[in-house]
Design a protein around this nucleic acid. Structure first.
Lengths: 217, 217, 217, 217
DNA sequence: CATGAATGAGCATTCATTCAT
DNA sequence: TATGAATGAATGCTCATTCAT
């Protein structure tokens, strides 16, 4: 008779995303955004349900537990939301360019541009990801999308190397470096009030343009 | 008069470093190293006094509180210790080279080389720094050394630009990018068992060599 | 005027049993049976409304609160249902025998036989009863039927003693012992997969036959 | 370096029983006795750390967590303590008798006598054991001693059957019945103020004497 | 110097129950 | 009738820190 036991978690929350009510979706979004704010402002370590609930204007932490299967679930949603927002911001700016060099520039500038458009999103996500340990059971779930995104980037670089547009280098190291540099820059932008993110984006794009392009010597 | 205010603690022990006995210094070192290990293995979030005490072979957390004014103090010491170790590793390898390009290569390769020499130190420090928030009273204390180190690097780059060895770029953005890329690479090395840190170091050095050098086209 | 006071609830639904519609009765039965299942499987302590609702295929716990005045009310119904089922199983098997000894055998064997016929009912009831405390306001309500059943048994024993069929003993102690032994045996049957309940029933009947019968020495 | 990680529990509490301080042992005893009291009075379900702490005169529940690795550990200790007390009460009374019949009488009377000597101990233990589910990981630990005690009783009965002192019956069923009857009687004694436990003990001893002894017909 | 005991705030989570729809 | 959203108290537990010895 037991329908889907095994988990102590609430049935309603994490079961079937397609069956969500409008109200539920709204509440979840509200909570996720409050979480992003709190994580960016106070850090993952202090992003307790209590704080998040307060930021979301909720009367109790029980509310969060009601809508999310647990902290993991909420954090997974935070990462997903930031990914979504970032992708929506970056992808069109890349796609209106042609050629690997131009697209890489666009990717970096748009990514750093998130610092202006959504100052808290990237720092929050970076903080969440920094707290995923290898042994964390939810690691795979959270990283899934991101790692495949990185794989796509690596593949794109390989192609540009084959076409001669990019010089020879280890694309994985390059992708890691770009990701790290962009995140660090966005984070710095969030912290330093009069940081010029747009200029820094251009600088960073120059940097990796020099780092990747074929040098005709 | 108090050296490191901000904390409400009095903690007679941690006040005047010059007055430390030998045993005290040894204990502190033992605790700091245990802390580095725990942070690298389990993450800052789970690096409680209890865990650190266990890792250090101490019977109680009281011991840690006795030797350090608080968690801030311990973490400050962790950062200082890693900085010391890193500097001792990197500086001589830089100084045996001449010219900005060679020295930058040496800096990057030696820094990434820390992944082999002290696999836990850099990840631990990165994790600690990621948890410093703007409102954190100990922020200034901790970041002091690091920021001045960064300033030195920025200054060196400016010089190399003036001498024509490096192309024109914003040296602050460059330093941030290098720092971020190196840290990310070392952290990846700690996580992925068969990661070839030496090769990655060379790749990264190549990357930033291309990114910085004067392009005679 | 209120039938089952003690609770602060008003819960229009549970007030007057005679006014129940068919759907209502069906829902109640469905919930009670789900509750029996959950209690037997997971224990009273973990038999939350959430779990019971899930087991009953209901989408929310609100449903249960709607149909029952509270947890007390539901548990009262669980006990009543098990009593009903047990009585329906045991009584006819007793009535087809004559003589106190034969009827006692029949009672014990039929009672233990519930382990095969309704494996979850008795353990669930035992678990519920174990959680009734002296100060529990619903205690009287729940125990009412059971205690009067015990009184009937005591009275029957007294008669059998007067008729000389049973030896002299304290019938209350005897009834308590039989009840306890039967319940423990049924519970063991529920836990141990290859427990032979029928054989144990015969053994237990023998046991109490020896314990009660007149010994002609 | 990590000495004994893996568990999130506190190191100090459950590690090495032999290394306990006097104060620690005293506190543990105090807490265990408070727990017995609360469980007997309010039931296992309501025996929260908060209640137990209050009963023990402690200012916070943290204190309990400090001395016990968790609720399981505390409950294990409750069972162990009651077992110890019961054994100390029952064993000498058995050993001063000879012959299986006399010893069984002594066992039952002494066991029921615990209702007078330690009115809360047995009910508390019964309540704790009733809440151990099959899937409970601590089940084995807790039941270990008890099950082996039952095995000893079964073996003793077998011997008495071989020697002809006891009639033929399934000793496991008999032991289960005795255990259940005794526990139920002690529990009743705890609930009903003017219950004559001594008389009931004698009655119960008679009951099982008749049930077990060889009937020379 | 070192220890272990104590403290109390904070944590995520589950609970029975209420209520507008 | 039925639902899902909301509530807030309570749960076991961990934490950094204090302090008497």
């Amino acid at each position: 008779m037991e329908a889907s036991s095994g988990s102590t978690k609430q049935a309603a929350a994490a079961k079937d995303p397609s069956r969500r009510t409008f109200t539920e979706a709204a509440r979840r979004a509200q909570i996720v955004n409050a979480a992003i704010e709190v994580i960016a402002d106070a850090g993952y370590a202090k992003a307790s349900f209590a704080r998040i609930a307060r930021a979301a204007g909720l009367s109790s932490t029980g509310m969060i537990s009601y809508h999310f299967a647990g902290k993991d679930d909420l954090m997974r949603e935070v990462v997903a939301e930031v990914s979504r927002v970032a992708d929506a911001h970056v992808r069109p700016r890349m796609e209106e360019r042609t050629g690997a060099r131009a697209r890489l520039r666009a990717f970096i500038e748009a990514s750093v541009g998130l610092a202006d458009a959504y100052p808290k999103h990237v720092p929050a996500m970076v903080d969440v990801l920094a707290h995923l340990r290898d042994d964390d059971p939810s690691r795979r779930d959270v990283l899934g999308t991101l790692e495949s995104a990185a794989d796509v980037q690596v593949e794109r670089m390989r192609e540009a190397q084959r076409s001669g547009e990019f010089r020879e280098f280890d694309p994985r190291v390059m992708v890691t470096a770009i990701r790290a540099a962009v995140d660090a820059t966005v984070t710095r932008a969030g912290r330093e009030p009069d940081f010029d993110a747009e200029a820094a984006g251009r600088e960073l794009a120059d940097l990796f343009d020099h780092a990747t392009r074929r040098t005709e010597r």
